[in-house]
């Protein structure tokens, strides 16, 4: 399956793009996706501990099992207000 990944805020600058696509085996988790993303965009790897992950419009963690049609967003801590 192919999973679109969007980078928000300064993560897009670090990744060098606002969006990418990751191809994964069925049953892959967000954690597996992150490993692939960090191979593709090494500057993001150092920010792993502060990275927030959403699938669609809900927060998820590394253990979430991705499904075809899911869309992942990665972004830094939020700063509204």
């Amino acid at each position: 399956m192919t999973i679109p990944v969007t980078f928000w805020s300064y993560f897009a600058e670090l990744a060098g793009c606002a969006e990418t696509v990751v191809t994964l085996s069925d049953g892959a988790t967000v954690g597996v996706l992150l490993q692939r993303v960090y191979q593709m965009h090494p500057p993001l790897a150092g920010l792993r501990r502060s990275t927030l992950i959403a699938v669609g419009v809900e927060y998820q963690d590394d253990g979430y099992v991705l499904r075809p049609g899911d869309r992942v967003s990665l972004f830094p801590p939020v700063q509204g207000g």
């Binding site: 969007t6 928000w8 805020s9 300064y10 606002a18 927060y59 972004f75 939020v78 509204g80 207000g81």
Partner: peptide, 28 residues
Amino acid sequence: VVPIWKKPIPPSDACDAPSPDAVGSNPH
């Protein structure tokens, strides 16, 4: 929890035009 971010704009970079990447230009 609300995904909003802010980027400081120094005085030398200020202008009247809004930033093109400020309003969700991330394709999503």
